[in-house]
Nucleic acid binder design. Structure first.
Lengths: 209, 209
DNA sequence: CGTGTCGGAGAACGGGTGTTTACTGAATGG
DNA sequence: CCATTCAGTAAACACCCGTTCTCCGACACG
């Protein structure tokens, strides 16, 4: 085993990735439901018919993009949950990590924010399922913090879902500001996010009354 | 003055509204950036060229839909802000009003949630501007509550923006559940929203420390 | 080395698209 | 009452679309 995979499969995966990249690029200025198959193959420099060797149709490419986009987010979330110090430092680090992630993966963030409520059912469901997994992961992380000792599992999940939603909204807001090259707006949004997280954190501390 | 407007203008506004209605209906299963001009006129039963008597292009129809959709939301927000009783009752009433609004205006809610981060810049900006106005309105309402006495204006606005975002997210989530005819999921989401609002409310009470 | 596999090319198909043009006929207003 | 305005029509424009088909040629493998 562990053969170096054939030149054949390597080339195939290469054009498949090229299709995904081209799709993601084109989705910067339109929605998935208006993305054309020919449009994608044209950017890659490949015949329209070649598309079918990799995806059944455009929605199928969409769900592949969901996996690609949210796969990289897993790393971010684990990084945030692994933070050790106090609440305030944790919040600062969290927002900093999000800011950095948005700057480094703008297209993925835009795609998720756009298609989360977009016009393609299969993609919406794929995103919802993945975000639910994230929420569960965050909930598990929250469980281990002493603050959550007296909490019910339901309430911990409720809090985790709130964090995930807030994360997506914040990332999308930073991205919108970054699109306008408005660094000041970015900072303002980050500061707002920090204060919102602080507010939630305060609510957490007094939940069990 | 105060002439009853001519039969001419009345008919024009009638087909204009028909175009808006048809557009909104078609947007239930696609995004604005894939909505076709001919598609809309076909539903209305009017010649494609007639479209140009009312809108410059599809994005233009989109911003008109934004005004229509968020205009009706103004009423809802005022209703929520006018609530008198304690925090708990206010939260229950708020969520109940949102549930009712979603059930009565599903297409408008879906449109806003979908196009808020959608592929048409002009529409995104129109929605953002309108939601900013809502946030300002909510902030003004919060200011008048005794709880906000020691708060800075910036912090009140931050809280208001959080409420607005939370409202949109909740409405969209309820709608998704309603689309699947899953009444149980609707109730679960409403209950989650209530608890999240309670958490925020708790944070509010202890903000000034 | 020869045979089979398969990613991609190229062309053709029917059909849909946005936009412009010249027009019709009914409401309008002096 | 008659000239004007103008919402809506019908046709034509050039173009883009998804999908299918046949074919090619480089890799895979016994």
């Amino acid at each position: 085993m562990s053969h170096t995979i054939g030149v054949r499969q390597a080339q195939k995966q290469k054009t498949r990735q090229a299709l995904l990249d081209a799709g993601l690029r084109l989705l910067a200025e339109q929605s998935l439901s208006s993305l054309g198959l020919r449009e994608v193959t044209r950017v890659v420099g490949v015949a329209p018919a070649a598309f079918y060797r990799h995806f059944r149709d455009i929605p199928d490419l969409g769900v592949a993009l969901v996996e690609e986009s949210l796969g990289s987010l897993h790393v971010v979330i684990r990084a945030i949950l692994a933070e050790q110090p106090g609440a305030e430092e944790r919040i600062d680090r969290t927002v900093a990590v999000v800011e950095r992630y948005v700057r480094e993966n703008p297209a993925h963030v835009r795609f998720i924010a756009r298609e989360r409520h977009g016009g393609v059912r299969a993609v919406r469901k794929a995103i919802a399922a993945e975000l639910a997994r994230f929420a569960a992961e965050v909930a598990a992380g929250l469980r281990e913090q002493p603050v959550s000792d007296a909490w019910s599992d339901d309430d911990v999940l409720m809090l985790a879902e709130m964090y995930v939603d807030h994360l997506v909204m914040t990332a999308s807001a930073i991205l919108d500001a970054a699109d306008d090259d408005d660094a000041a707006a970015c900072d303002r949004i980050a500061e707002r996010a920090r204060r919102q997280l602080r507010l939630i954190s305060l609510g957490r501390l007094h939940w069990t009354d």
